[in-house]
Amino acid sequence: MAEALARISQVQDWGMIQIRADLERAGDAIAGAAGLTVPGRGRVTSDGSRKLGWMSPDELLLVLPLSEMAGTLTALRDALSTEHALVLDVSDMRAVFRIHGARARQVLMKLCPTDLSSMPEDGLRRTRAAQVACGIWREPEGYVLIGFRSVADYLRNLLTTAAAPGTQLDPR
């Protein structure tokens, strides 16, 4: 039996904070409280344990260890108290999958209408995986895909099917 195109695993222990604000005005305050520089359009900044992703011109997503959630929420809210801003714990509404392996990109090529080869190393791309919305960024071993919690089973099945052994996209 051939090998699967990639290893699919679900991440359960990430905290996530949604930040909506005028990033021009509030960028420094966010960076200070989040401990990361504010990413440019379509990018992610990272310090190893945390990631700060650009979701839209007025929205960021901070990914961090669950243990740091409460403190960081407070820090962000304090830092943005004088701004028109929204800081929300959205840790529970997401399903996160890792797609790791040499052919991880091929798995996503079957599901996302996105030119993955043009995505920069530190890129964050929001798109769809088959019929549901998702966001994608890279890791050294492959990709991370985040979607909504209610469709976690769908996403897992989708990714596993796309990674099925023997289905590599290499020319035959």
Binding site: R41, S56, P57, R125, R128
Partner: peptide, 12 residues
Amino acid sequence: PYCGISAEETEL
């Protein structure tokens, strides 16, 4: 124009 991405119709 907001995120600079060329999106296909199914993403819109």
